[in-house]
Amino acid sequence: MNQKEEVCQHKMLVTRDVLEVIQGKWRIPIIVALTFGNKRFGELQRDIVDISPKMLSQELKVLETNKIIKRKLYDSMPVTVEYSLTPLGLSMKKLLDEILDWGVHFRKEIIGK
Rank of each mutant, 00 (worst) to 15 (best):
R16I: 07
K11Q: 12
A33E: 09
T35C: 14
L19P: 11
F41L: 03
E64A: 04
R27A: 05
L60K: 09
E82L: 03
L90P: 01
I69F: 01
V14R: 15
E59N: 13
L44Q: 02
K108T: 00
E43V: 02
T35Y: 13
V49N: 05
V7E: 11
Q58N: 04
K113W: 00
V7R: 09
K11D: 03
V104G: 04
W26E: 08
W26I: 09
W26A: 11
I28H: 01
R46T: 05
V81Q: 00
I68S: 02
E109Q: 06
Q3R: 06
V21C: 13
V7H: 04
C8R: 12
E6W: 04
I69E: 03
L100W: 09
V49R: 08
T65K: 15
E59T: 07
A33R: 05
I99W: 12
Q3K: 12
D101F: 10
G112P: 01
Q23G: 03
V79F: 12
L19C: 12
W102F: 15
S84I: 00
E59C: 11
H105G: 02
E20W: 08
M77S: 07
L90V: 10
L63D: 03
R107A: 10
L19Y: 15
L63T: 05
K93I: 11
I110W: 11
D17M: 14
V79R: 14
G37L: 00
V18C: 08
R107Q: 13
Q23M: 05
F41Q: 05
W102K: 14
E43S: 00
F36N: 14
M92E: 06
I22L: 12
K39T: 04
N2Q: 13
L85K: 03
K94M: 07
A33Q: 06
N66G: 12
H105D: 07
R27C: 06
E59F: 02
D50L: 14
M92H: 08
E6I: 10
F41W: 01
T80P: 01
G37H: 01
K4D: 15
E82F: 00
V81D: 00
V62M: 11
D17Y: 12
D75W: 03
G89R: 10
E5N: 14
E59H: 07
L34R: 04
R27E: 11
L95W: 09
M1Q: 13
D75I: 07
T86M: 02
W102C: 06
G103P: 01
V49T: 05
I22Y: 08
G24S: 06
W102R: 12
Q3N: 13
V7F: 13
E109M: 07
D17T: 13
K70T: 10
M55P: 01
N38H: 11
K39M: 14
F106I: 11
L95H: 12
Y74H: 07
L13T: 10
V18N: 09
C8H: 10
K93C: 09
Q45N: 04
P29H: 02
D97P: 00
K70R: 15
K54L: 10
A33N: 11
G24A: 05
S57E: 01
T35Q: 15
L85G: 01
T86G: 02
H105N: 06
V62K: 11
K61I: 15
I68T: 06
K93H: 12
D97R: 14
Y83P: 00
K70Y: 08
G37N: 02
L90Q: 14
V21A: 13
K72C: 05
H105F: 06
Q23D: 06
Q58L: 13
Q9L: 11
R107Y: 05
G24R: 08
S91M: 06
S52C: 01
